[in-house]
Amino acid sequence: MPSWDSYKTEARARGALALELYVAHSVPAGDPAAVKAALPDHLAYQARLEAEGKLALAGPLSDETGTQMEGMGMIVYRAESLEAARALAEADPMHRAGARSFTLRRWLINEGSLTLSVGLSGKTVALS
């Protein structure tokens, strides 16, 4: 099995994007009231990271059936390293308070597409 860095180098050589991001899978760690109490600070923290260009995407995940919310979430960070991403995740008020715990992984984005639509007169933005 190749090392992470050699795989990333090979992906770039093939012409893949090889954009490295960091994904935190965040889960409730106990009392639901602790999650609710930390939510305002968590959302403010995420808004700050987004403004700083350090938060790519974040939001809740459904259960495996796609019909229920189980409190799991995914946060995708832009960072210089796994250690820097870990520091961002650890500083999240949800994680710092112990309301949620997380696992963190590197994510190498090679393929895919996004569509951005900006309506100037209607001042609308849509991402799909």
Rank of each mutant, 00 (worst) to 15 (best):
E10K: 06
A11D: 08
A11V: 01
A11I: 04
R12P: 04
A13I: 05
A16T: 03
A16Q: 13
L19W: 09
L19T: 13
L21F: 01
Y22K: 05
A24T: 00
S26M: 11
V27K: 07
A29D: 01
A29F: 04
A29N: 14
G30D: 11
D31T: 00
D31V: 00
D31G: 02
A33T: 08
V35Q: 05
K36S: 08
L39F: 10
L39N: 09
P40A: 06
P40E: 03
P40R: 15
D41L: 14
A44N: 10
A44L: 04
Y45H: 08
A47Q: 12
A47H: 12
A47R: 14
L49F: 02
E50T: 06
A51S: 15
E52A: 13
E52V: 04
K54F: 12
L55C: 06
L55D: 06
A56V: 14
L57D: 14
L57H: 13
A58T: 08
G59Q: 10
G59W: 11
P60H: 06
L61H: 01
S62T: 15
S62F: 15
E64H: 08
T65Q: 09
Q68I: 00
Q68Y: 03
M69C: 05
M69T: 08
G71M: 08
G71W: 11
M72W: 12
G73T: 06
G73P: 07
V76F: 10
V76D: 08
Y77W: 13
A79Y: 05
A79L: 07
E80W: 05
E80H: 02
E80L: 03
E80F: 05
S81L: 03
E83G: 10
E83K: 13
A84S: 13
A85E: 11
R86P: 03
R86A: 06
A87V: 05
L88S: 04
L88W: 00
A89K: 01
E90P: 07
A91F: 01
A91R: 01
A91N: 06
P93H: 07
M94H: 09
M94P: 02
H95A: 14
R96G: 07
A97S: 15
G98W: 05
G98D: 01
G98L: 11
G98T: 06
G98F: 12
A99R: 13
R100W: 00
R100C: 11
S101D: 10
F102I: 06
F102V: 02
L104S: 10
R105M: 15
R106M: 04
R106C: 03
I109Y: 03
I109A: 11
I109Q: 14
N110M: 09
N110A: 11
E111M: 12
E111N: 09
E111S: 15
E111H: 15
G112Q: 04
G112K: 03
G112W: 02
G112V: 06
G112I: 04
S113E: 06
S113T: 09
T115I: 11
L116W: 00
L116Q: 02
S117K: 01
V118D: 02
G119H: 01
G119D: 14
G119S: 07
L120N: 05
S121I: 11
K123E: 15
K123D: 15
T124H: 09
T124F: 07
T124R: 03
V125E: 10
V125N: 02
V125T: 12
L127C: 11
L127W: 08
S128F: 07
S128K: 08
S128T: 10
